[in-house]
């Protein structure tokens, strides 16, 4: 389980460093209440809340969670 969580963290960080010119940036997305500190954590909460109404499998919810997290992180947390 630790390996999985660590891998997820690596995916988050790698994707945030490599992603450029995302749709979120194009749309100038403003995710509310993103604090400077704990920005990534806020994106986690935002992403979890966003996929909550999604009625689909765990696998698809996880995929969508990672997708919306990446958008949030790139827009709000990437320096």
């Amino acid at each position: 389980m630790k390996k999985i969580l660590l891998s997820l963290a690596v995916i988050f960080v790698m994707s945030s460093f490599t992603a450029t010119n995302t749709d979120a940036e194009k749309m100038n997305v403003e995710i509310p209440t993103i604090a400077e500190a704990g920005c990534a954590r806020d994106c986690v909460d935002y992403s979890l809340e966003t996929i909550e109404p999604m009625n689909d499998t765990y696998k698809r919810r996880m995929s969508t969670y990672l997708w919306i997290y990446e958008i949030c992180y790139n827009r709000n947390c990437k320096k």
Partner: peptide, 17 residues
């Protein structure tokens, strides 16, 4: 790939895995 970007996928591609 979406709009030539190597990194951002369409939601459809994301959901189908």
């Amino acid at each position: 790939l979406r709009n030539g970007s190597k990194h951002q996928k369409d939601l459809l591609s994301v959901i189908i895995g």
